[in-house]
Nucleic acid binder design. Sequence first.
DNA 1: ACGTTCTCAGCAATCGATTTCAATAGACGC
DNA 2: GCGTCTATTGAAATCGATTGCTGAGAACGT
Lengths: 332, 332
Amino acid sequence: MPTLSTVARLANVSVASASRVLNGIRTNPATLARVTEAAEAVGYVPNQAARTLRSRRTGQIAFAMPDVANPVYTTMVGSIQEVARARGWRLMLHSTGAEPEDELAMLRDLKHRYVDGLILASLHLTPEIVAELARAAAPVVVIGGATKDGCTDTVRANSRKGAGDAVRHLCALGRDRIALLNGPTHTTPGVARRLGYLDGLRSCGLERRDSLIEVATDFMIEPGRRAAELLLARERPDAIFCANDLLAIGALSALRDAGLDVPTDVALVGMDNIPLSALTWPSLTTVDLGSAERARIAAELLLERIESPEGETRLVGVEPRLVVRASSGVPA
Amino acid sequence: MPTLSTVARLANVSVASASRVLNGIRTNPATLARVTEAAEAVGYVPNQAARTLRSRRTGQIAFAMPDVANPVYTTMVGSIQEVARARGWRLMLHSTGAEPEDELAMLRDLKHRYVDGLILASLHLTPEIVAELARAAAPVVVIGGATKDGCTDTVRANSRKGAGDAVRHLCALGRDRIALLNGPTHTTPGVARRLGYLDGLRSCGLERRDSLIEVATDFMIEPGRRAAELLLARERPDAIFCANDLLAIGALSALRDAGLDVPTDVALVGMDNIPLSALTWPSLTTVDLGSAERARIAAELLLERIESPEGETRLVGVEPRLVVRASSGVPA
DNA sequence: ACGTTCTCAGCAATCGATTTCAATAGACGC
DNA sequence: GCGTCTATTGAAATCGATTGCTGAGAACGT
């Protein structure tokens, strides 16, 4: 395996010069040509470990997400990869399974310096995680809730407002028994969407009824189906706002099993605008929280922060956008 | 940032001894205790780059897949991560976008030695890729088609047999105008599933009719919907075998738009058994190609190969399994 | 013609571990 | 009591790059 000194010897220069050429540092055109040619000739590839050891830069960033199988996060992966690739960075992906311990482990692992920065998409920032964020060994950008102390760059969606918009949309269509199918309420999105739902009810002058609120065990299809079944067993809502699209797809399945038509009997609104939501039957009205954009911004923030670790931390918000489709009852 | 020599100094031993303790090499219990304690006290974390540089091991493996958004691959990610984590390896994920150039780049990048091995899930092994596989700088296990020269460990599904089974299943239910909704035919799965479909027709004594075959531009939902529309515009099949579940979900949408009932008018069978296939309406009959198991085996093969680079290359096959649900017309 | 500045290349230190090799000390057999 | 063997340990080399410093020579100004 050729090393830098192989190249240097062949080009008849010192390793220092060879290194400079390969790193694009100004050199005499003649040496530049000789080194380039020699490197080409022996098929030189720099050793990443040696380079990292000396320069303290890895050229890699990591993205830690709760669940690879969730389309929201795969969308984010796409955006981040785009930014990273365009700027010559390699991207590492991690699936934490939404386990706080796993997220903690990711943050602690930054000490190993195997990446130069981390984008952490978290459903719930525990106090331990916040503490670890403050002393992280490399820059971190959080996608999700903001930390109180504000000492970490953060990109967040305004899902509270989005949830409110969804409820107001349903109300404007004449629905007045609007249920909430939420995900776990100990999570940031769970809390925000519940508040948004209540905001929405209030601004429409609707009474809040706790039996119209059901909580699924996870933000996924099957839990959504089960929670919807429980809800339907005790109530007869004329609309359901689901805290995300996967839950809504589960609810769709439960409604069908119960012989209820969407949107005639029950209007349905989801949240996230995952690709699949346009292809269900009926197609799903949803609130786009700008996942792709948030991820892109997070990646850009991270790379900037890596370039210049100092400077104000930033909190960027992305505004929600209602995407009206068939499931909420608006004619095609 | 504490280094090994910090620990050694504190424990009053040489760095060599400290290194031994931290690597679990037999040492005097007294030194062991002192070093462990010192490491604990200063919060020592080994520098990955230095370790890799010297020992030529990174403790990382990579998984390159065509598309993170495809549930088949996210399933694989889960299995691989499980195996990797259990054995103390870190996993890197890459989405190649099914671009041969990206897959090539992944293989070439192995020379940087930033991982100790690669699992490559490829839809189509071009001659260039096969050539690069032969001279890869680190062990590679391929999930997908086998290389002719057989000098790379491979795990593959028998989707040809699976496709045949699907067709025979449809035939046994009395269907005799069985269409094929295939993905791109320049891919390994595209070819295999087409052959399996033809096998199936033959073994049922059915005539092959080219107008019953439609090819989508990609193995995804939306292309599936469009291809199904084209098919329905010229033919009236009583069953459609789709080359994967995403295509089948697209087809489901097209059939619904065309006012055709599944399974009464048209029976539908997919392939891959993705989680979503159990939750469509009607639920989707499909052929399980053992994605999770293939990925698990691939991970195990890779780790074994890393331990002992020599030895026969292996070709492992996983057998398909028909999963009968509602869409093929069997009563619930 | 001479001092000053600038460009470029090389020497050598350095990053933080692992690993080889030799030295030491104690255990043991006879 | 002496030679041999074994268990530990430390010194130093090594992995393959990057980078600070130094000096040689060219370019330039006066």
